[in-house]
Amino acid sequence: MTEALLTIENLNVSYRGNGRSAHILDGVDIKIGRGQSVGLVGESGSGKSTVAFTLLGLLADNAEVSAGYAAFDGRTRNFAARETASLRGTDIAMVFQDPMTALNPMFTIGTQLVDIQRRRFPRESRKALWARAEAVLADVGVQDAAARMHRYPHEFSGGMRQRVVIAMALLVEPKLLIADEPTTALDATIEAQVVEVLHRLRQRTSASMLVVSHSMGLIAELCDSVVVMYGGTVVESGKVADVLHRPRHPYTQALLACEIDPYAAFDPSQDLATIPGNVPDPARRPQGCIFADRCPARHDRCRERPPQRHARDGQNYSCWLEVA
């Protein structure tokens, strides 16, 4: 395998304020291969969005970032120094959950799709950029793209806006596309349309993709590999199919057990699976395994930090339990 597009090892992010310090990310390792699509899955408080924001240099001013090693596109980078802000909008593009945050209500879609390309292609004429924008807009499934270019964001439906934002991200020809909950705000049949657009894109562009979501279903649809986060740490990572069918970390196992398959036979009097307990407070993180408090397989060793285990098929997990 060639060198990865993005490698981050031992990423730590903490916030200081009011005399307290909260550790949001603790030793996160992430690797995204060229052309690969990686899913970052976790529940609220897992730190998955913080990873995305760190990559984009969008963290708040009181955030302290440190990484053992970080490289993007063959060059080492210092994510702590906000150097990554220069990658934003050129090498790294982002699709947000709420498309309205990315669109300026005062300008037409066409103007915004042209302006976004200026930094990337400063020498191109407006006419050429406009034509490119129109083509990409049609590409992401906006019908009648030529006319739609002259419309304002409020004249688009939610699904169409999200397509516009995806087009916007594609126009800069990024090496990495980050999608943060790209379909969460959409209705089911519209979500299916956007998933299809993203799916087509995967086959068409060489860009790598990082899909951040709480939905295992979305990750399963769009990604090759998945990184499971809990309480600011990576508990398990590996190929999507492997992690789904043979989860090794107790948290991944418990999370997948909570997924409901409405087509499966079930006993209606049986309780639905849950994970009792709460996500640990980032200001008071436990010394040992982050999941120990809620883990059904907890034992004495869990008071110490669990080791990283590497299974033969490339699946990684951090747990004291040895899983065959």
Partner: peptide, 25 residues
């Protein structure tokens, strides 16, 4: 049928039967 098939699923087999509706509500 389309609504149910649009539901994101972990089951790759069912994903293939998806009916993606055109147009908007």
């Amino acid at each position: 049928r389309a609504l149910l098939s649009a539901n994101l699923t972990l089951d790759a087999g069912r994903r293939r039967e998806r009916i993606v509706l055109s147009g908007e509500l």
